[in-house]
């Protein structure tokens, strides 16, 4: 009996949380647009969320590309197929690693910061003060952060993939001695813009939407105590990572499943 009650309670809790999350999203997105006022706010948040994540994206993209070239080379060379290093590095970065690793890093670097910031605003009653001044916190605080995340992450993913491919070139061509011409030309023959590059960007957009939504919601919905904020921040990272990996499988199956 007690187990049934707690099961019911947790189910209802989850559904209610989903409802609150949707309410926050619609409240932030579907409002009368005021571009003159909101554009500088979004710009500021792109700086915080996007530009400040650039370093970690550049470094990890470079090293992931380099490691992948090194690992792939040791296998490919035993079949005499080291010329296929280019398409291997490019396809795995564009289709999978670029969007996914960027989203994971973004959730850890920017998502947790968003949650903590908004949660602390709630705990120090800044959000209530905004409401007192007849400013909608959903539009003043949540919306710019949400849009900044959705805009920044695909850009970061593009940069990640490009830097990774260049890193793969550095290791494969300059160090291991794969022919530079065949690295690029076989890559160009294999990678298709619409199929691979565009689908990677679509993936990244979906991840951006989900991660930023989770981060913003967890912050706005946090219990306004120091313990509640720490829990919300942890939940942001865990839930976004799970959502990214689960969605990635679904999207990959939809986009590339038939090939």
């Amino acid at each position: 009996m007690k187990a049934l009650v707690s099961l019911g309670a947790s189910t209802l809790d989850r559904i209610a949380a989903l409802g609150r999350a949707t309410a926050i999203l619609t409240g932030a997105l579907f409002a009368k647009p005021t571009p003159m006022k909101s554009f500088p706010l979004v710009l500021k948040q792109i700086y915080v969320v996007g530009v400040q994540s650039l370093l970690i994206i550049l470094v990890s993209g470079l090293f992931i590309g380099m490691v992948m070239a090194l690992q792939a080379y040791t296998v490919l060379v035993s079949y005499g197929a080291e010329d296929s290093l280019g398409p291997m590095v490019a396809l795995s970065l564009l289709r999978e690693l670029g969007p996914v690793v960027t989203a994971l890093l973004f959730a850890g670097r920017a998502g947790s910061a968003l949650t903590a910031e908004i949660g602390l605003m709630k705990a120090t009653e800044q959000l209530s003060s905004l409401e007192m001044m007849a400013i909608d916190p959903l539009r003043r605080v949540i919306a710019p952060r949400f849009w900044a995340g959705v805009i920044s992450m695909p850009l970061l993913a593009i940069i990640f993939s490009t830097v990774g491919i260049l890193g793969g070139h550095a290791v494969g061509v300059d160090w291991l001695g794969v022919d530079s011409g065949s690295y690029w030309s076989i890559m160009q023959a294999t990678v298709e813009f619409n199929q691979d590059v565009v689908n990677g960007i679509i993936k990244s957009l979906v991840f951006a939407f989900v991660v930023t939504w989770i981060a913003v919601f967890k912050g706005y919905d946090a219990v306004p105590t120091s313990e509640g904020i720490s829990k919300a921040t942890t939940q942001t990272v865990v839930h976004s990572s799970l959502a990214i990996l689960g969605l990635d499988f679904v999207l990959t199956a939809l986009m590339f499943g038939t090939y």
């Binding site: 593009i158 940069i159 690029w184 813009f193």
Partner: peptide, 28 residues
């Protein structure tokens, strides 16, 4: 802030061009 965001977007556009021209040839 505006300067850095501008640089960030320019870097992303440059990467996109590299992907379109150098990685996926005759793409668009």
């Amino acid at each position: 802030v505006e300067l850095f965001v501008g640089l960030f977007v320019a870097l992303a556009i440059a990467s996109m061009l590299v992907l379109a021209m150098k990685v996926a040839d005759k793409g668009i």
